[in-house]
Each structure stands twice: as structure tokens, then as C-alpha cells.
Computed example of a mutant assay.
Amino acid sequence: MTHRWLWTAIALVGTVLLVTATGGFSAGQIDRPVSITVAENPENAIVGLSGSDNVTVTYGSSNDTKQPTVELFTVTNNFESSFEFSIQIVGDTNTPPDHQSLSAEKYSLAPGESTKVTANVVCSSQETETWTIYLEVSSSGVEAEIQHDISIVCAGPTSTG
């Protein structure tokens, strides 16, 4: 009879051990410290931006329908791997200066490569407007959004004479 209790106790302890958690892990989380600083010169940042914060567009007359292409800035890849980017203008109203198109020579840059970002701008009066340009950059699962403000100045006569 003593053996029967012993075997019952061993079976009961074994069942309890099989049913309860064993202390293993199914998921984990590790915090890794990261230090990010802002580059004092935007040209030296991982996504380098160079160019003027003020772009002047000259037009011939208030009836001038030309849409000159102006260089807004240059994007440079200072990262150690290639990245792709997209651009979008926010804050451009439907009054001059107005952009008709926004483009880059290329939207994928290898390390050290640069590309110019241009816009076709419509000016029919001497106005100034600030455009906020967003760049969305992605590389190897890393994504970043960069905001850059540019003042667009239309310079030229206000009427034909």
C-alpha cells in the first residue's frame, strides 16, 4: 500500500509540473540605448539638405504664363547604405507663387550621391509664400520624415506697360 501512495504522489507531482508554466520565455524586450543628435549644418546630416531657404522667381509681366523651373534644394545621402525618398509640398495655397510640379532627378540615392529637387513655379504678382516640404526617407527598415521650410519670392512687374 505504501508503494501505491508513493506512485500516486509521483504521478500527481508529474501532472502538476506538466500543467503549470515551466518558467520559459515566449517573448522578450530589450532596451538598447540610442543617441541621436541634430547636425548643426543640415548638409552634414544623414540626409543632407543644401540650398537657400529663400528662392526668388523672376517673371516678365502679370500676364506671363511661363512656369520657370527653379532649384529648391539638393538632397545628399550621407548614410552608409542606399535610401529612397519621396517629397511633398504642404502650405502652398492656390495663389501665386504656386507650384505646378515638384520633382527630383532621382528618388533613390546610393551613399554619397546627391540629387536636385526642383519645382515649376507660377508667378503673376510680387508675392512671397513659405512652403513646407516633407521628405519621407526609407532604408533597410528605417524610416524618417524631414520637414524643410522654403520661402518662395516672386519678383517682377505687377502689370504690363
Rank of each mutant, 00 (worst) to 15 (best):
T93W: 10
G23S: 03
S82M: 14
A110E: 10
P97C: 13
I36N: 07
S61D: 08
T118F: 01
R4Q: 13
E80K: 13
A45N: 09
E40N: 13
T15R: 02
S35I: 14
V19H: 03
E80S: 14
I133P: 03
T93G: 13
V34K: 05
W7V: 15
T115Q: 03
S82G: 12
T132W: 08
S151M: 11
G141R: 00
T95V: 10
F25L: 11
P97T: 09
T93A: 15
S139Q: 03
P68S: 14
Y59T: 12
S52H: 11
I146K: 03
V75S: 00
D64L: 02
S114Y: 05
T158S: 12
G141K: 01
G161E: 13
T76C: 03
W131M: 02
N44A: 12
S140C: 05
V142I: 08
V137D: 01
T93K: 09
F25W: 10
S35Q: 15
H99W: 13
T93F: 09
F85S: 02
F85C: 00
I146Y: 06
T69Y: 10
P157L: 10
S81R: 05
S61T: 13
A9G: 08
S101T: 11
V55P: 02
H148W: 07
G14T: 15
E80M: 14
T69H: 09
P111Y: 15
F83H: 02
P111V: 15
D31F: 09
T37N: 06
T58S: 12
N78Y: 00
V57S: 03
I152K: 01
S26Y: 09
T130F: 03
T56M: 13
G112T: 02
V70G: 09
I133A: 03
G24E: 14
G161D: 14
Q67F: 14
Q100V: 04
N54A: 11
A119F: 01
E40I: 07
E143Y: 07
A110C: 02
V57E: 05
E80V: 12
T115K: 07
Q100K: 08
L135C: 05
P42W: 01
S108K: 12
V57R: 01
V153H: 03
E143R: 10
K66G: 09
T20H: 06
T15P: 05
T160M: 11
T65L: 14
S35H: 15
L12P: 07
N63C: 14
E43D: 10
S108L: 13
H3Y: 06
A27Y: 05
